[in-house]
Write a protein that binds this DNA or RNA. Structure first.
Lengths: 211, 211, 211, 211
DNA sequence: GATGAATGAGAGTTCATTCAT
DNA sequence: CATGAATGAACTCTCATTCAT
């Protein structure tokens, strides 16, 4: 039995490496075989280790799958946040959000695929989804909605429901993610261009002479 | 074993009723327990029949699940097509497409939920998804893209990439569907209003005086 | 999934036979290999069936093991009660209780062994024993204690704590059971004789001329 | 690997302390979680040490569990023997045996519980119990039987089968032990009183004027 | 002396499918 | 047509043991 020290990040370097290795293997299997095909046996096989090792390093399959999602969110935030903060206008931040997000999912297609499998597939003991809509909205819609609202407050952005607009942008990005996940060779850039055009126009205030 | 006469629609009335009953039960279980929780035993239990009946009326679990998807597409088309065809302008048809689609998913939430579970969960023997991106695009993006292109040809709609625009509209609708599936109490109408505003503006030709 | 109809004893004849067969196999394995060695695989093997059959006929391993205990108690009661009721005096009933009980455990040694394994081995999810001391006392000590008390009320038996005396008799019988379980060739009759002498003397009222 | 020097008590003081510590932890876990719940991981956790330490100090799990039993027997003998030898009559020795034994199990309930778990649970590679009935009889019945026989030879005790009487007394004590193990709050003294009365009367020679 | 890491076998359970009745 | 019974494979998880450090 491994000492339960999750709360205090006291994991040794070597243990952290093993966990990374197992998470990576899980990502590959999830992307290849889907949620239903991602058995511990298969993940262990892909990682070149014995099945028991996974149980040793993770409390259970659920914890492993959750880490697949969490680690991806962390990576995404680490990449996107600096890009957004570097922008010097509300419109620039919206553009940075969309661009960096699309770029991230373009360069992490298999991780995205794996994450989608887990988010859609993982359920709790009560058969209810482990990742609820609220979870997802809080993690991905909320920051974007606040970004939009700040732009409205400063007068840089137009008049619209910021929460719904944020949902729309997220839906467009998630749609692109799903497409990218299903077709590894898909070129996202045309979609990205038109999407940027669509939303940058939608969030801007109407031009002075408009009716 | 039952004679395989699916291609020539020679199913008796009573057999068709049994299939409907089973498909409906499958929808309920899929919506409640997800793809992973939808065992034949549970579906049979929900339908109030024995497990063997399902095997008798369907070639296997896969065929049953496919029918869940197919029957929903048929229902959707049957409801949407007349609405779209009743419109007398390209813009009206776009509006009818979006409105009728959102209305359909609002009134068929559990079916939609079930379908999403199958589309995301079902895989073939080769581990590849049973419903590919191409399948989905052909069924849902293609008609919409052609509708848009026809509007562009007649000069009623503006200049944009019709295929990508169709994908964007689909992504927004699918996003709404996912939200509706996850939150049964969600009111879709505000989302629908803003979505209509977004896309009707996007597909219209620029106003005469615009730069 | 089998229909859950345990409460309304609506099990078919063939199902009841299978359950008996599985319980019997479980008894044999428990007697041979002990609680820890009684895996479902081994029980199924002994019964000449597949492992899944057990899961089909019993809700789980626990239910099977409980049935091993319950069926033995039922058999024991069915054999002992008529013998006890046939006696026409309190002393005769005490004698009948002890004699019939010892006789029962003599002729059901392997079942007794199996039951002891389950009672000592089976634990609940909370690690606490599934069969508590109270369970056992209620099932085996209580009827005997009441029998003794009735004899005291009618003046046929002497003055002693009926509950403790009942426990003592039970302990002696259980001790004999344990010995019989561990040594299949052990002759119980000398032990039975001396035990009868011990307790019949102990429960009788003191002779008239005693100090 | 550690040199196997168990036969020649050449263990260092510190090693002996470690073994005691581990045995004590095993007793606690056995008493709490039973034989099946007493994994090495749990025992190590209770002792505050790593799992490997146990493997280092004991040849295997079996040896550790045997020590739990053996150490308890040693403790019991060390407490009971002086008490028995201090008595100056056969009847006094029988009384001292019963009283000191009941007292010992009253003050060592958790150890007793743990020992019972091991005696009932531990099996050898051949599936046969590690502690046979003969073992138990030799260790606990034999000395008592000899004590009784000596009393008969000296004319102090009555006429009965000493071996069976010794078994009966043991069964009563073991019954009390089992009750005490299962109910930590049970008051043993009423049981002890009546048990003493029962057996002291049973082993005494009949009074002169009895028929 | 002691540790954490890894193994590999075996546990109970679930499930789609097959088949005799 | 429909059923209940049975199979056998695959699943997650646990655990005693081994071993390099």
């Amino acid at each position: 039995m491994r000492p339960e020290n999750e709360s205090i990040g006291q994991r040794s370097f070597i243990e952290e490496a093993r966990r990374r290795q197992i998470i990576d293997a899980a990502v590959e299997v999830l992307a290849d075989a889907g949620f239903g095909g991602a058995s511990l046996a298969r993940i262990a096989d892909r990682a070149g280790i014995s099945k028991g090792v996974i149980s040793y390093h993770f409390a259970g399959k659920d914890e492993l799958l959750r880490q697949v999602v969490i680690s991806l969110y962390e990576n995404g935030a680490a990449m996107m946040v600096p890009r957004i903060e570097a922008a010097d206008s509300a419109l620039g931040r919206v553009r940075a959000y969309i661009e960096s997000n699309l770029e991230f999912l373009d360069t992490h297609r298999r991780h995205i695929t794996a994450m989608i499998e887990v988010v859609f597939g993982l359920r709790g003991a009560d058969d209810r989804p482990a990742f609820t809509a609220e979870d997802g909205d809080n993690a991905s819609v909320l920051p974007l909605a606040e970004l939009l609202r700040a732009g409205q407050d400063s007068g840089e952005l137009g008049d619209f429901d910021a929460w719904i607009m944020a949902q729309q942008i997220r839906d467009s990005i998630d749609g692109a993610a799903t497409r990218a996940a299903r077709d590894p060779d898909l070129d996202l850039s045309p979609y990205a261009d038109q999407m940027l055009a669509l939303y940058l126009r939608a969030v801007q205030p109407p031009p002075p002479g408009a009716s």
